[in-house]
């Protein structure tokens, strides 16, 4: 049996809101240590992995490992109407493993609304263990998420693709659209800061801009974001969710191949 409780204004729900423009259904695995959500966008271009340790929830109990397909779009839609201080409880039982129950309790505890959400069948897709993969990556950029969001906002003025390339002591974002082009150079400052750009080998990736803008939404929930690039490999965008937590989200974005 699984039971977890959270307040409506929790980071978990804010993250779900932020990823909904990419995915509407997700594979959710729960164990005694926490919850893992994985989802791929409809075109199979972006992959999202979200990890929330059990202690991040107001209450968390899972006595048996569970894996289920959840229409997170429908779930978030139902929770949106709840009071901002309301408490959300999500339950799944072993006896009836065809749906989950989501209950919303008002802050005064005088009103409870429950709804049953049918589970969906999803073909699971597993990616390799990422930390091992990233050791072989060519370049990593740790940067404040406000910088990443600002750059994505600049890029959103150009409709098309973005080329992210390593340059001497930094990286370059270049977008070419119908109305013109945009060039952003992001360099490693001389003084120690919260920016860390490490380049083992030159790399350049061409990526669909619309996905970058979706990633920027989630990075708004975190102070720092880390981009990892490697030749011919998906872009990896990682960020911790919130401060002083071990919750984290990882995006993978498949590049475009020129020619």
């Amino acid at each position: 049996m699984l039971e977890l409780k959270l307040v409506k204004e929790s980071l978990f729900l804010n993250v779900l809101e932020a990823i909904l423009d990419l995915v509407a259904v997700a594979s959710v695995s729960c164990s005694s240590t926490g919850l893992k959500l994985q989802a791929m966008d409809a075109k199979g271009v972006a992959f999202i992995s979200l990890l929330i340790p059990a202690k991040e929830f107001q209450f968390y109990h899972c006595d048996k490992d569970l894996s289920m397909g959840i229409a997170i779009g429908d779930m978030v839609e139902a929770i949106r109407s709840a009071d901002k201080d309301g408490t959300i409880t999500i339950k799944a039982s072993d006896e009836n493993f065809r749906n989950i129950t989501v209950s919303i309790e008002s802050p005064e505890c005088n009103e409870t609304t429950s709804f049953s959400l049918l589970l969906v069948t999803l073909k699971r897709f597993c990616i390799p263990e990422l930390q091992g993969l990233l050791k072989k990556y060519d370049a990593c950029v740790q940067m404040p998420s406000v910088d990443f969001m600002r750059i994505c906002k600049y890029l959103s003025n150009v409709d098309g693709d973005v080329d992210i390339s390593t340059i001497d002591k930094g990286i370059r974002f270049f977008a070419l659209g119908k109305c013109g082009c945009l060039n952003v150079k992001y360099m490693q400052p001389e003084k120690a800061t919260d920016i860390d750009i490490s380049v083992q080998a030159p790399v350049s990736l061409t990526l669909d801009l619309k996905y970058m803008n979706s990633f920027a939404k989630v990075s708004a929930l975190s102070n720092q974001v880390k981009l990892c690039l490697s030749k011919g490999q998906p872009l990896v965008v990682q960020c911790k969710i919130g401060q002083k937590t071990k919750s984290r989200i990882i995006y993978l974005l498949a590049p475009k191949i020129k020619g």
Partner: peptide, 14 residues
């Protein structure tokens, strides 16, 4: 622009 690859193409063997 280029040819969009999918995530599955990179990790198909795993």
């Amino acid at each position: 622009s280029g040819v969009q690859r999918s995530i599955k193409e990179f990790y198909r063997s795993t």
